[in-house]
């Protein structure tokens, strides 16, 4: 069991899927709150940002109430779609996605906010539909924010512990991600496994963060040079 790779593979899979979900949801939410006015917008933004300030166990507890047997979503999924979420690896995906959504959302929103609105207006006067404006002007210009959000959201998802433990449990081979495996290996005195996983997750997170810094630095020096 010294080099069981299943937590690593599971963590990467969970982080990838939750990041893709966040890419779609976070980008749409960021665009909508940046460009539209509607009642309850403040409330929505606060709810999206809550996972940043609340302990992950609280988020996990809330998700458990929502997705549990008697929770509104859990009941609906079980009754009509015969899907059970709690204590499956999908629960790990949901926990990771909810906890890392604010990072994706805030980065993408900064990206959208930095765009000169006249550029979008110019595209409209040049005959562009709203969809074309979004894909040829808005999104390419917001790309730095969106990409930074993706990387932050991925590393946060990779490191998620509290909410995952509450919603997905600790089932080796099924819901045991790297952070959970480290905690339980360390508790059980299995230092070898713990150290191995600590090195793996530190290495991945270091690489991504280093890559992000390198990329941001390259972009800013390019702009000065140009």
């Amino acid at each position: 069991m010294a080099c069981d790779l299943s937590p690593v593979l599971l963590s990467v899979r969970v982080a990838l899927i939750s990041t893709v979900l966040n890419m779609i949801m976070g980008t749409i939410l960021a665009w909508v709150t940046e460009n539209k006015r509607f009642p309850g917008k403040n409330l929505l933004e606060t709810v999206i940002g809550l996972p940043l300030v609340l302990p992950p166990t609280v988020i996990g507890f809330g998700l458990l109430l929502l997705f549990g047997k008697h929770g509104p979503l859990g009941y609906f999924l079980a009754e009509f779609l015969h899907i059970r979420v709690v204590f499956t690896w999908w629960a790990a995906v949901i926990a990771a996605a909810v906890v890392s959504l604010p990072l994706m959302y805030k980065s993408a929103k900064t990206g959208f906010a930095s765009i000169d609105k006249n550029l979008e207006q110019a595209a409209r006067t040049l005959g562009s539909s709203e969809t074309r404006v979004f894909f040829t002007v808005t999104l390419p210009l917001a790309a730095p924010g969106v990409i930074a959000g993706l990387l932050l959201s991925f590393t946060r998802a990779l490191g998620e512990f509290g909410a995952t433990l509450m919603l997905a449990g600790n089932i080796p081979g099924q819901t045991q991600t790297i952070p959970l495996a480290i905690y339980f290996a360390s508790e059980a005195g299995d230092t070898r496994t713990a150290v191995f996983l600590v090195i793996v997750i530190s290495f991945i997170s270091f690489l991504i963060t280093y890559g992000l810094n390198w990329w941001v630095d390259g972009r800013s020096s390019m702009r000065k040079g140009g």
Binding site: D116, N118, L119, Q121, A122, A123, R124, T125, L126, G127, S128, S129, V137, P140, L141
Partner: peptide, 19 residues
Amino acid sequence: PARLRRVGYVFQEYALFPH
């Protein structure tokens, strides 16, 4: 909508697409 009007617009700071 603006896209169907066929009216050219040159913006004050030009609004060229930087990318």
